[in-house]
Structures are given as C-alpha cells and as structure tokens.
C-alpha cells in the first residue's frame, strides 16, 4: 500500500503510522466544566462512527517528513481519495485546528 504524502509524494505505507478517525474534534475544556465536559471527552476519545466506506483519518509520516496527515480513504477498498496536511504541518499559520 502506498500513501501519497502531500509533501513527499507516494510512499510505502511502512513509513506511516495510523492514528484513527479525524472527524472527532477535541472539545473545549473549561477547568470547571464538570461531568458535561467529561461526557464530551468520553465521546471524543471513545466513540467512533467506524464506517464501512469513506472515512477521514489521521496518518503520521513518522518514517519520512514527520507531518501529520488527514487522509480520505475507503475502509472497504483501502483506496485513498485524498491526503492533505494537518493544519499545523510545517510552518503553516493557523488560528486553530481545522483551519487551513
């Protein structure tokens, strides 16, 4: 399997590490958020859509340029539809996660 790193081009999957679903966003965590924030974090950390089909997911090109990537990939065919850089890869200046 090869993954097209937006910086390095197509590379053997052995250079990459998989993290998981890129859809969940880390919730804001006010210090006094109480159990409501726990609920949000529980959802963020533990619950997954785990779809059979196209997903957005995090890959890390740790065996290469050390960029975090967001790939659109099918879990049924393993085909990559797109691979883009995480908002903060390189010297990119983003106000917050998700901006690009």
């Amino acid at each position: 399997m090869r993954i097209a790193c937006p910086f390095c081009g197509a590379r053997d999957s052995g250079e990459f590490t998989y993290l998981g679903d890129a859809s969940p966003k880390r919730p804001d965590a006010p210090i006094d958020g109480g159990t409501a924030v726990e609920d949000q974090f529980y959802d963020y950390v533990y619950l997954r859509d785990n779809v059979a089909g196209l997903t957005r997911e995090y890959w890390y090109h740790g065996g290469g340029c050390r960029s975090w990537l967001i790939a659109e990939r099918s879990t049924t065919t393993h085909e990559f539809k797109s691979v883009t850089a995480a908002p903060g890869a390189g010297a990119a200046k983003a106000k917050q996660a998700g901006e690009r």
Binding site: C8, G14, E15, G62, G63, G64, C65
Partner: peptide, 10 residues
C-alpha cells in the same frame, strides 16, 4: 532529496 526509512528507521 527525500526523507524516508531504511530498516524501519528514518
């Protein structure tokens, strides 16, 4: 130039 891996090492 490339950053790549040899024997699982960057």
């Amino acid at each position: 130039a490339a950053t790549t891996s040899i024997d699982h090492t960057a």
